[in-house]
Design a protein around this nucleic acid. Structure first.
Lengths: 139, 139
DNA sequence: TTCATAATGTTGCTATAGCAACTATTTTGC
DNA sequence: GCAAAATAGTTGCTATAGCAACATTATGAA
């Protein structure tokens, strides 16, 4: 079996190409792609705990904690100890974080349009289904 | 636009799930997934330069250099200065590196089978085509 | 109630990923 | 043939990704 026969390698390389592209688009706004995922969640629903964010993103809580630390350093969010559970940190958007959304959303939506150029809705539906199946296959 | 509407996020999360799965399978052999990609190349063709490896994998030469450093430390390869170009390092498999292939290849091919369970050849063909188109869309 | 167990988040580790700046060589242009 | 430009690798930086071990706090069971 050769290199490009492995579907996982194709997926990995596609992921790197896409991530690299959006990274360069977001650079000017001082936000990294994965940090932006967290912001995407917060723009939808403010006040999530670190743990809730990790679960929604299906990521290790370690990285989430570090990304939130950086987002706090950049002034996009703040973290307060939860009243009901003193182990837990609640994450809130700052004004700067709210503002960021207005600039970022057009960029990411334009990015999605570029990625999907020349691809039909039906094809996208099939791809989503198959990628989902692959994920379940390795769970 | 919500979270799961971004096809790039779906691709990214699929990539993470697949990479994590093969990582755990290869752990016992003391080889990491991306290190294994380099080995895959070398089992096909020994004596590549670092630069050639970077181009074939479409990756930054920096990482390739560091991964090769680690592969050398593990004893799977050695690096010799090229006779024809003293800037260039040629990468050669050691006996241990050759041996590794016999153990790794069955694992990675089984992995590919698991990933593709319940997915037809036609569907895979479509997915490959669309992922390729996405890559070209962001170039 | 109190002690074992859960959950939340942090620190330290390794591995990937790519940019910028650097050294050392080789190739090119004149 | 020599200076300028290009190429091959390295070092240092930031960001992601996940594991193990840990401290702190909360919950559950006896």
């Amino acid at each position: 079996m050769k290199f490009n026969d492995y579907i996982s390698i194709i997926i990995h390389q596609t992921d790197l190409a896409l991530t690299g592209h959006i990274k360069s688009k977001l650079d000017a706004l001082n936000i990294a792609p994965e940090q932006n995922l967290i912001m995407l969640l917060l723009w939808e629903q403010d006040g999530l705990s670190q743990n809730e964010i990790a679960e929604k993103l299906d990521k290790d809580k370690t990285n989430i904690a570090r990304m939130l630390f950086n987002l706090e350093k950049k002034g996009f969010i703040r973290r307060d100890i939860s009243q009901s559970d003193r182990r837990s940190l609640r994450v809130y958007l700052t004004d700067k974080g709210q503002e960021l959304g207005k600039q970022v959303v057009p960029i990411t939506e334009e990015f999605n349009r570029i990625v999907c150029q020349g691809i039909t809705e039906d094809e996208l539906y099939v791809v989503r289904g198959i990628l989902g199946k692959m994920r379940r296959n390795v769970e």
